[in-house]
């Protein structure tokens, strides 16, 4: 096996121009590390997020807990809202499109959003196929519940992976499950002898080159963030301690009693996750967190993490 100098230099992409696009996109994901990406539904929320120290904002029509409550089809954010948010802040603006909905993705690329989240939080547009993300110049982030799913998305061109967790619940248990699962699978892959990797790839349902890369480097070839159910500074510290390189917070901020304070507190907790004294300081006086839903009591039909293939 050739020695790999840098697991994140997109060397697995053969076409040079495509490789450079992927590298610069992984590079932006690296710049967001250690930060908090906050869901926002309008310019005012975007400004609050930026002032609280968000590293990027995610534009969407409704936060996940409202999507759960109100039901109906959840789609890409209206174009005017994306533009209004882009005008309002200087930090990167991300936006969600439906799984497989490459036309929504083209619209978002045309709007020059900085990252597209092909997200299970929205209603899927395709029952079997994800977007061919290598056909785009704009970077994509995708959710994953396990290593095979992460590697399929990276194979399709995702420049960042996030756990799915269970969005809109304020329940961290699924996010923790996905983070631990991915970490455990990476760890065990590094101990697999090279001649067994093809069969492992077959059984996982993941691209061989990606499996080989993870086995030799012991890490994902793109940054790995946590999302889904993060509602408190302690939740952010927990997922950071479990290896998440950054944190997405959805309903947890603007559905809390004190959005601005909660946003600031989660930003500091994400940086100082190892320092219990700072975690005490930031956890004080926040009022109540979002109410939340127990995912254990949730019927399978309401689980968003099962969306995606």
């Amino acid at each position: 096996m050739t020695k790999i100098e840098n697991a994140r230099d997109a060397h697995w992409i053969r076409d040079e121009a495509a490789r450079e696009i992927h590298r610069k996109n992984i590079g932006l994901a690296e710049m967001l590390c250690g930060g908090v990406i906050m869901d926002v539904t309008d310019a005012e929320q975007a400004r609050i997020a930026q002032d609280a120290g968000a590293v990027a904002v995610m534009a969407l029509e409704r936060v996940p807990s409202d999507i759960r409550k109100e039901g109906g089809i959840a789609r890409m954010s209206p174009v005017e809202i994306v533009e209004e948010i882009q005008q309002a802040v200087t930090i990167p603006v991300m936006a969600k499109c439906r799984i497989g909905h490459f036309a929504e993705a083209r619209i978002l690329q045309q709007l020059a959003v900085d990252f597209i989240d092909e997200s299970e939080v929205l209603t899927p547009a395709d029952h079997a196929y994800h977007i061919d993300k290598r056909a785009f110049e704009v970077p994509f982030v995708c959710g994953a519940t396990c290593l095979a799913e992460a590697l399929r998305r990276i194979g399709e061109g995702a420049a960042m992976i996030r756990t799915k967790g269970e969005a809109g619940t304020g329940d961290i248990v699924e996010g923790v499950r996905h983070l631990r699962e991915i970490t455990r699978e990476i760890r065990s892959l590094t101990k697999v002898p090279h001649e067994e990797l093809m069969t492992v790839a077959k059984e996982m349902g993941a691209p061989y080159e990606m499996v080989e890369l993870v086995a030799s480097t012991g890490r994902l070839p793109v940054p790995n963030f946590a999302a889904g159910g993060i509602a408190t500074p302690a939740d952010a510290a927990l997922v950071r301690a479990l290896g998440a390189e950054a944190v997405f917070v959805g309903s947890g901020i603007f559905k809390s009693e004190n959005p601005e304070g909660t946003a600031r507190a989660i930003v500091r907790a994400t940086t100082h996750w190892e320092d219990a004294a700072t975690l005490v300081e930031v956890s004080r006086g926040l009022g109540s967190a979002m109410a939340g839903l127990d995912t254990a009591a949730m019927p399978a039909s309401e689980r968003l993490a099962d969306r995606g293939w």
Partner: peptide, 14 residues
């Protein structure tokens, strides 16, 4: 390092 200058400035002050 690189990152978001607005965020880094916020945290340097905090």
């Amino acid at each position: 390092p690189g990152g978001e200058s607005t965020t880094l400035d916020h945290l340097l002050r905090t």
